[in-house]
């Protein structure tokens, strides 16, 4: 059951990857990368359940966090040309 869900989510990520590669604007790419990040978080949680290792959830939480901060940083750079 978890395996099927994981495979479906990977397929979704591949679809979004098409948008990340094609663009046409840098914002489309940022959006696509952010969504792949969210899917990765879910995937990590599912993998934790498949292999029965609950510590994967810690990694999923960290990934959600880093993904959020990275997108905000990227947007700030796009908007102001600096980070401070």
């Amino acid at each position: 059951m978890f395996e099927i869900a994981a495979i479906v989510i990977v397929l979704g990520a591949i679809l979004v990857l098409y948008r990340a590669l094609k663009g046409p604007r840098v914002y489309d790419r940022a959006l696509a990368v952010n969504i792949i990040g969210t899917k990765t978080v879910i995937l990590l949680a599912l993998i934790g359940f498949i292999y029965e290792r609950p510590h994967f959830l810690d990694i999923a939480l960290v990934y959600a966090l880093i993904n959020f901060i990275a997108t905000i940083a990227f947007l700030k750079y796009m908007e102001t040309g600096g980070l401070d």
Binding site: L65, I66, D84
Partner: peptide
Amino acid sequence: IFSASIILYVLAFG
């Protein structure tokens, strides 16, 4: 992770 929180602070507040 701790430094990531400070980075978020800089991004949001300057």
